[in-house]
């Protein structure tokens, strides 16, 4: 891959209470690509995602986003959308109202954009049902809408198709491919090999906090 990387991890390691969580991770990720991360539970995928978002600090090594070092130049990537575990959406609010509460923090998008994002993931933006009435699949879709609504440059999704039926999985795949075409840098963690292979330009295999394999798909050179 040529050109400057958008997101770089340089020999990143993380230790928590003497336990080695991540070991010597090197990444060079570009915009307009989807990167798949596969590995068993506890292999370090989610922890790596948290680290790339600035939520945890590297014990060794550094993470650069768009040329700026996390923890030194910036605390968090300036434009990032994340889905790691369900957000604590309020049961008494509609999906729209829950997203609006989060969008109000930055105020970079209007109500129309929030509704558009809800529609993109296959939910009805004008649905008056409260979040407590949502099925697991609907909750997952709302979580994805939350991650993409502010049109972030970097999108990090941990098991985005969890709890979705086959139609839902297809819809989300389409959304992700559209976002990729828009030039976003997308990172996805999943157990599902077939789904990851379909979506990803490159795959990273993780085991015990290390990247044990890395390969490109569809002729893309890693």
């Amino acid at each position: 891959m040529t050109g400057t990387a958008f997101l770089e991890a340089n020999h990143v390691s993380k230790q928590i209470k003497k336990e080695q969580i991540l070991t010597d991770i090197d990444l060079s990720l570009h915009k307009g690509k989807i990167y798949g991360f596969r590995g068993k539970n506890g292999s370090g995928k989610t922890m790596l995602f948290r680290l790339l978002c600035g939520l945890i600090r590297a014990s060794k090594g550094s993470v650069n986003v768009d040329g700026k070092t996390l923890g030194e130049d910036i605390s968090f990537p300036p434009s990032v959308g994340v889905l790691i575990e369900y957000p604590g959406f309020l049961n008494g609010y509609t999906g729209f109202k829950n997203l609006k509460l989060l969008a109000e923090i930055n105020k970079i998008i209007d109500d129309e954009k929030i509704k558009q994002s809800i529609g993109m993931v296959g939910l009805d933006p004008d649905d008056k049902r409260k979040y407590r009435k949502y099925s697991l699949g609907m909750k997952q879709r709302l979580g994805i809408a939350q991650a993409i609504m502010e049109e972030p440059e970097l999108i990090i999704l941990d098991e985005p198709t969890n709890a979705l039926d086959s139609d839902g999985v297809e819809e989300i795949k389409k959304v992700l491919l559209d976002l990729k075409a828009d030039g976003k840098c997308i990172l996805i963690a999943s157990h599902d090999k077939e789904e990851l292979d379909y979506l990803s330009d490159e795959i990273f295999m993780m085991e015990n906090g290390k990247i044990v394999d890395h390969y490109a798909l569809e002729g893309d050179s890693a």
Partner: peptide
């Protein structure tokens, strides 16, 4: 405790400041 546990991730990333 609920908000720190469930929402800190989504809120701090948006506010860019813990």
């Amino acid at each position: 405790v609920h908000d720190l546990g469930r929402n800190a991730l989504y809120v701090t990333i948006r506010s860019s400041s813990k």
